[in-house]
Design a binder for these strands. Structure first.
Lengths: 144, 144
DNA sequence: GGCGCAAATGCTACTATGTTGCAAAACCAC
DNA sequence: GTGGTTTTGCAACATAGTAGCATTTGCGCC
């Protein structure tokens, strides 16, 4: 299926991490790259199904896990118990997310540089900061 | 059990919200008030069991839900799929949490005032910001 | 103090999300 | 093509949270 003369961005990303080019990985990464917002397993699974890509729920979990471990994607905990995934920003540390309380969408705000120069109480070692903004997205805000 | 001349803080908080004073609510709120960190359902349930308070898992969920709805407690999503609860800070908006990647504890850092004066893209309406700091807590940091 | 109503509880069963183990298939190097 | 390793697919399991409904309990009212 994959023409060597037309390597998709997804294939390049996978190859760069030393991973094998498989149907599932390419398809999942394609979906992630096409989406401008974070997706749940369910959403990714549906997208794969629409493309006629045969896949298992477990495979999807493992594929996403692999992508996260290799820094291609990043995962975050939403308000509900469903984890969401998105393509990793160029700056993996300290980038913000916007969570719409109305429709539940999560968008990456990579342009933001929150001032996390907080003074932690003694003993705490800061590794990374995650800023989540809650509110209404443009779509939902209009209906208010 | 509850002596009107000695109303516990928990009972006062519940009564202030127009809620009924029940064993479960008082006990749950007591646990939350005593804890300086956020607790999971499981942890609260264990604490209740130790006090000999008969309770159901579902009741606990509903009690916590009620507390959150009435602004007495606040819930947050952890890294895993378990929600954590804590007593609401005096300033419910814009207060930070510290999440220990080592032991999984979540501590409220109410003294912090993160600069969330971020410039949101047009259309986004900011309601509240949640800053989660990841790293090692004093206990875990020593062992590193 | 007793009565009655509505809220709260407790129980069972159910859904959703995520994980583990293992055999079969696919991918890549040779 | 062949061989070795990775990845996939399946089934079963584990955990977190929810729904419906009958019973109990707190609390206002008489």
């Amino acid at each position: 299926m994959s023409d060597p003369t037309h390597p998709s961005p997804a294939e390049s990303l996978i190859a760069a991490q030393g991973g094998r080019i498989t149907r599932t990985r390419v398809a999942v990464l394609d979906v992630l790259l096409a989406a401008e917002q974070s997706l749940t397993h369910d959403e990714i699974g549906s997208a794969l199904a629409e493309q006629g890509i045969k896949h298992d729920r477990v495979t999807l979990y493992r594929t996403l896990d692999w992508l996260v471990e290799n820094g291609v994607a990043h995962k975050m905990a939403g308000d509900d118990r469903a984890r969401r995934f998105g393509v990793a920003a160029s700056a993996p540390h300290e980038h913000a997310h916007f969570h719409c309380d109305c429709c539940g969408k999560v968008v990456c705000l990579e342009g933001l540089q929150p001032a996390v120069a907080v003074n932690l109480p003694g003993g705490y070692q800061l590794d990374r900061a995650e800023l989540v903004l809650h509110g209404a997205c443009p779509t939902c805000g209009k209906g208010t």
